[in-house]
Structures are given as C-alpha cells and as structure tokens.
Design a protein around this nucleic acid. Structure first.
Length: 437
RNA sequence: CGGAGUGUGGCGCAGCCUGGUAGCGCACUUGCUUCGGGAGCAAGGGGCCGGAGGUUCGAAUCCUCUCACUCCGACCA
C-alpha cells in the first residue's frame, strides 16, 4: 500500500479521551476511530490486524476440528425467553423492536441460537461430537466502556460451542479447545496462562480464563515458570492422541497460576522460589463446560446407541478478537509506538523513501515495493525523513527498509528491525530476503 | 446508576470568572529555500463556539433544559 494514497491518519498528539497506552497508540497509529462510547470504526490498518488475528484463530480452530459458520448479530427474543435468559441477562443486553413490534436483540453471545440450530439438524448420537464456532460482532451494553477496544460495547469475538454425547466427550472437547487456545496465543506472539475460573451454578472445575501477560495489564498474576517455554505446536501435544491431551491438560492445571483475587499464599509458597513468576495480565479468552443447561432448556436431544433420547453435553469457548488487538499492543510497545509480532502486523515491512523524486532512490523503492506484493507499506509521501521514521516506529512494522540517495548511489539500503532496533546496511536484495524469510 | 469533569476548525488547547470584531500550536493549501530522525520564511483556506430555549442593545462567555463524551466506583470477552 502506498502511504500517499492510504487512509492511514497518524497523529502526532494524543487525543484527550485515550488513557491507556494501547488506546493512545491505536488512535495515533490510525488503526481505529471512536464513533460512540465503546464503539469503534476500524480503519484500513486496524482492520488488517483484526483480519490477521481472526485468520490465526480460524486456522487453529479448524485444526482442532471445529467448523466455522456464521450466525447473525440480530436475534429473536423468543429463544432467549425459552432459555430464561431474556430476563436474566439484564440491561447489558441491547434490545430493540422491528417495525412489527417484535422483540429482537443484538446478540451478546450465541448459546441459544447454536443450540437451536443443532436441534433442527442433529438427531442421532452418530452426528456427535460437533464443535462449531463463528467470528462475529457482539454487543454488550457495558455499564462503563473504557480502555479503548479492550472494553468496548461492540466487539469482535470468536465464540465456539461443543456438543458431545456424554461428559467424557465434553471433557475431551474442552481439553482440545484449551490446547487450540494455547497454540493460537503462541502464534499471536503472546504468553498466555490458563487459570481456573469461577464456574457459577454449574460447578466443577471446567472453566478457565486465559490471561496474557502485559506489563500494563489490569490484574496481578502469579504463575509457575513452567508455563514459559512450552512449545504448544510440538508433536508432544498432538491433538489426535487422547493420551497426549490428558498429559497436556494435567500440565496446564497442576502448575500454580492465579490472579490476585484468587491468589493462595500457601500454594504459592509450595512453588520453588526460582520458578515463581509475577506479572500483570489481561483476560483474553474464557472456556467453560456447562453440561446440558442449554440442550435441556431448548429441547436439543439425540437418540443414543441404546435408543434412548439424550441431551448433549455442551461447552463454550470464547476469544476476544478485537480486545486482542489492544492486548497485543499492551504487551508489545515502547515509547516510540507499537511493536507488532510478525504474525499480526498490518504490514510486514515499511519502505521509507527518504528522497521522493530522486530517480535512483525512487527506483530502488519501487523495485522493493513490487517485490513484497500486498505486504509492504510504501511511505512515498513528500514528508521529510524525520516524520517518516517517527510514523514507521509508531505503526510498528516488524521491518523498516530505509532508502535514501546515499545508499541508492552505493547500491545499499538500511534495514531496521523494529523489535530489536538493530540496523544494518545491505543490498536491496539481501534486505528483501530477510523480510520475506 | 452514583460521584467528578469536558464539549471552541482534522488533533491538542486558550478565551468564559469580569458579555462587545473567535484566537494559538500542530495539520492543510500555494510559493521559495531546505531535505539521512517530526525544517525555515512568506502568503492563504477552514470554526457561526455540542443542541434548544431564555436574559440582554449585544452571548463562546450569564441562566434553564437537553445531548454527547471522558474519568472514579459496582459489572465484564
């Protein structure tokens, strides 16, 4: 993308409303603009990030055997009345009426709808298990939206739902999803820790929150260093192998990990001192098992092997996709701006043309730009070098290729790595090789 | 919802107390000079001051109502 022709409005000054660092940087880097309290428009660069995250989530869900579908944002109130949540959900649910005075709602989640869909199309245990997910906009009318996209009212969420014949199957789905989540977060370039969460009226221990570590996170977290350095993509955690899944789950749930409100000093003291880690964290995902709550309420039953009708055991699995953008920035930034992990960066590299109009410089830039199709941001604006450097740092591209007349004459460019700050002088071809590696 | 604030060109702000020609910095346009870490000079363009009502000869400024947004608290992917 040529910056001169892009809607990528960077700001030198921080808009007054932004308090936390990710919000400030998202506004300054031209990723989003607020349109109402807790509601954001995603500008081109921000949308690219959101798509990149969604795509990784999607690939990992698919790899775990989940199937993608897409349910609507608007739902009829009927199913929610049936499940009892129309009244229970309270004012956080946005309710509206259509022209015929029918009650609708903007979905805050989709348990009712997905259960109803399964009820219409599944009738035998042979059709189970099923895990279905979608990545769709949600609306929750938060009492107080804040922290930019981290606590918006309209937000993009991946929500998945599992249906199993029995409890053992549900546990298997749950574990599979947990592994899928750890792989997802690993690919997104963040350290994530699963922590036991409240299960509410369902009981049991099958509910986990996923906290990603960021120095500016909302809550203090305590965890065993054993969580660090695990490669979740290794064969050790092959999903097809149930024994592997069990071992994985054991490892995730036996090591100490807790947020400050659940911190247990006694258990903490049992962790060897050299393995104790403390940090700040942001909740980015939540998974839980809830048995037959919705299948019972909405009448989803299948015929079992013995001919009797059985209510499938369900679980649900959420990742805050739009929140992840803010959380990633909280985890990866410095004074100059964002430092994107490679996997989600809106542009893998920026090409900075330091002397627009200089034939040799322009030629090198154009050549580089053509060689990184669709993946580079070419700063071809008439701005001076300082502004280009500052904007490139702000926007956080993993690589910056700095092309000036001096280098162009000598046949070299400067390659800067945003994460390390390291710069090297090398040929355009070598720079290209590093970027596209 | 309770408490505290803020609304003035795209962004950041001053002006309001004590009514009298709407200002500053950045950004934008044009020209010249510059050009390797947010340039200089000159000349320009853009806002009826969130909205409605009121007081007044006269309202960004005073009064009433209203809308929006932000921050603190309870709630949350």
């Amino acid at each position: 993308m040529r910056l001169s022709r892009s809607l990528l409005p960077t700001l030198k000054e921080t808009p007054a409303e932004a308090q936390i660092v990710s919000h400030r940087l998202m506004l300054r880097a031209g990723l989003v603009r607020q349109t109402a309290a807790g509601i954001y428009a995603w500008l081109p660069a921000g949308w690219r990030v959101l798509r990149n995250i969604s795509e990784i989530v999607r690939q990992e869900q698919d790899a775990a055997g989940a199937q993608e579908l897409l349910m609507p944002t608007l739902q009829s109130a009927d199913l929610w009345r049936t499940s009892g949540r129309y009244d229970a959900y309270g004012p956080e649910m946005l309710r509206l009426k259509d022209r015929h005075e029918r009650d609708l709602l903007y979905g805050p989640t989709n348990e009712e709808m997905i259960t109803d869909l399964l009820r219409q199309s599944v009738s035998s245990y042979r059709q189970l298990p099923q895990i279905l997910y979608h990545i769709q906009w949600k609306f929750r009318d938060e009492i107080r939206p804040r922290f930019g996209v981290m606590r918006g009212r309209e937000f993009l969420m991946k929500d998945g739902y599992s249906f199993d014949l029995d409890y053992a199957g549900a546990v298997l789905s749950y574990r599979r999803m947990m592994l899928s989540y750890m792989r997802t977060f690993q690919r997104l370039g963040v350290k994530a820790i699963p922590m036991v969460a409240d299960t509410g009226p369902i009981g049991g221990d099958l509910s986990h929150e996923f906290i990603i570590l960021a120095p500016t996170g909302e809550s203090q977290v305590f965890y065993d260093a054993d969580f660090e350095g695990i490669d979740y993509s290794s064969d050790e955690f092959d999903m097809a192998d149930e024994a592997n899944l069990v071992r994985f789950y054991e490892r995730m749930t036996t090591q100490y990990a807790a947020t400050d409100d659940k911190h247990d000093e006694t258990a903490w003291a049992a962790v060897p001192p050299e393995r104790r880690r403390e940090g700040r964290g942001i909740e980015i995902g939540h998974i839980f098992y809830f048995g037959t709550k919705y299948s019972d309420a909405l009448g989803l039953q299948v015929s079992g092997p013995d001919g009797n009708r059985v209510s499938p055991e369900m679980g649900s699995y959420g990742i805050g996709v739009s929140r992840m953008v803010g959380a990633l920035i909280e985890a990866h930034h410095d004074d100059a701006g964002i430092i994107w992990p490679d996997s989600v960066a809106p542009f893998r590299a920026a090409i900075l043309n330091l002397k627009q109009g200089d034939p040799a410089t322009d030629a090198v830039c154009e050549r580089l730009y053509a060689a990184i199709p669709g993946d580079a941001l070419y700063d071809d604006r008439p701005e001076r070098a300082g502004a280009k450097f500052a904007d490139a740092d702000l926007m956080g591209h993993p690589w910056q290729v700095i092309v000036g007349p001096r280098g162009a004459a000598a046949g070299t460019v400067e390659l800067k790595c945003r994460a390390t700050g390291e710069r090297q002088e090398l040929s355009a071809e070598s720079a290209l090789a590093q970027i596209t590696q």
